[in-house]
Design a protein around this nucleic acid. Structure first.
Lengths: 342, 342
DNA sequence: ATGAAAGCGCTAACAC
DNA sequence: GTGTTAGCGCTTTCAT
């Protein structure tokens, strides 16, 4: 493996390749970016000598010339949230398909950091994907300022977004539980600032209302942190109610609920049923495995990139928001309620 | 928020700012990159009118001019592995401290993709961090070709790296278990191609050898996948042995072991003790919570970036490998063995 | 199909 | 301390 540097010690450029091939730099450039514009034999000669010389196109130079960086920014509120990695992967894969790489920014749960990071991304990326941003709509709009962008799991007026609607799946799971004989349900709600938490709470309330005639009643608990510890607290709160089944804000919280119930010797699903949301890896790993609503990660990522791509190509296009649906996944944390004590 | 574009519709540049301020473009440039070189009042005037005009430095242009992109590449074998997010975060934070952003590449568990991604990063980043790469040393070296880089949790001759040594912590945990009365231990080893798996196996073997006189014996099982399912299989295998305590390759595997034992009504820690490795978030969330070895994530990230930074500044410097240590964390998955059946 | 030349936005000597 | 002037490596008219 020879060091692929020009004899002079400098990296090779289209110029050195051009010289070596006895063609002009433009032809070399074309050989890489518009292969169809250069005669086959010439192109092949260029490509092979370029490879031999270890030539690598300089992305920055290309970017200054074209005005496109071929990079997308992805900002997440918290990369350690198990919801994110699959999303990151999906976004990245889709971005690769359109020839872009993605620079990841973790806001470490700070809304302030979010807007600051967005600012930093200006002039560095062609567009932005904001996953469940926590910053206020106003702050967001201001930080984004003209940069093409799409939100994931949050809608803000005037901004395109792709969101996951779990109401159908949640209702399905609710029906199933009601069918099992559950009547009193608990809603363990997530952070009040969370758009997703609002949506999920709304969905569950709506379902419960529809089922009122069937004797279903809903007790709302929280808000709790969307964390394991938040879940522990939610689990404790749950036991103070008559609810036999609980909807946790997400799988992580549900996981905390499971732990708290276990710690208090309350059996799941025998004595309480609990359902999570998102279907993160974790959901399969805990005992009992979680009944939950699977988010269409890959589709979320794909759609976000498609929307963004479209938006980069047609600036000033109207903001649309596409809605995908979650899918109910039944596992071991739900079952018929225990028979009333004798 | 007005659209921050030049009246002409184009983005503002150092030139438009310079014109608006009645100074030369270099002064504007300096005001941003070497503030100390420009008189206070001038600098302030420049900065404020720049802000008013919505000027944002163009990173690509800067990069072509300086030859530095201020971007680092981070390639991970599998972003969904819970070990990675904290590492990613740490790396990112440290990178930010030296003024760099990081573009994340997920190889989706394919060694081939790894080298391909590395190739893609050439001419796009100033340096590379490779987290537990799976590609062969040869393939790696070839793909890296001259690009400054540092490996995390893997050592390859001629390449700088930062690794985590868990042997001390593992031995500590082993001693503790032996002190509890355990005598037969199982080593549930990880993928044979994994550098980390080799190291951990070696550490545990060495410890067991040292303890032979104390009656400690070790049975080696595996290799198993470093996954939940791998852990389930490992758990099943464990029950075919006389071992009362097991070292799993990592927390994810340990988690599978826990599930399998639970499924077979084997109580942890009463009937079997199990220890994981890494201390991922998961370790705290499962029931019982895992005794494990905490990896110094933040330090790993910091050190990797420091090494890389140093290496970018001084090309051709000798490759050093720095070793950090894991810390034992005792939780609920370990305890004295059950008394021999009467 | 190929070449010549201008320009992308910024930095970095080098002068003043 | 500030302005002048070359580039950085690449793309892209515009000719030929």
């Amino acid at each position: 493996m020879a060091a692929h540097t020009h004899p002079s010690g400098r990296r090779s450029t289209i110029y050195s390749v051009a010289q070596a091939c006895g063609v002009s730099s433009s032809t070399v450039s074309r050989a890489f970016t518009r292969p169809d514009l250069v005669r086959d034999d010439v192109r092949e000669r260029i490509l092979s000598t370029a490879a031999a010389m270890g030539y690598r196109p300089n992305r920055s130079a290309r970017a200054t010339a074209t005005g496109r960086t071929a990079m997308l920014g992805l900002v997440v509120p918290d990369i350690t949230n198990p919801f994110m990695p699959p999303l990151v992967r999906a976004v990245q894969r889709a971005a690769a398909d359109i020839g872009c790489s993605v620079t990841l920014m973790d806001a470490e749960e700070s809304a302030g950091a979010e807007t600051q990071l967005i600012g930093q991304l200006h002039g560095q990326v062609d567009g932005l994907i904001l996953a469940s941003p926590r910053a206020s709509s106003r702050a967001l709009a201001e930080a984004i300022d003209e940069l093409p962008c799409v939100l994931v799991n949050r809608v803000v007026k005037e901004l395109p977004s792709v969101v996951c609607d779990n109401s159908g799946a949640l209702a399905h799971l609710g029906d199933r539980l009601a069918g099992h004989g559950h009547r009193t349900f608990a809603l363990l709600s997530g952070p009040s600032a969370s758009w997703a938490a609002k949506q999920r709470a709304r969905a569950i309330r709506a379902w419960a209302n529809r089922k009122e005639d069937a004797g279903v009643s809903l007790v709302e608990l929280g808000p709790f942190d969307a964390s394991y510890d938040g879940g522990r607290r939610a689990g404790a709160a749950l036991l103070d109610t008559a609810a036999t089944a609980a909807f946790a804000f997400d799988d992580v919280m549900a996981c905390g609920v499971l732990a708290e119930l276990d710690a208090r010797d309350v059996q799941v699903p025998m004595q309480r049923s609990v359902v999570g949301c998102d279907d993160v890896l974790l959901a399969r790993m805990v005992t009992p495995s979680l009944t939950t609503v699977a988010a269409p990660m890959a589709a979320l990522g794909d759609t976000a990139i498609t929307l963004l791509h479209h938006r980069i190509a047609n600036p000033g296009i109207a903001a649309e928001t596409v809605t995908l649906s979650g899918t109910p996944v039944v596992r071991d944390s739900t079952a018929p309620p225990a028979p009333p004590a004798p």
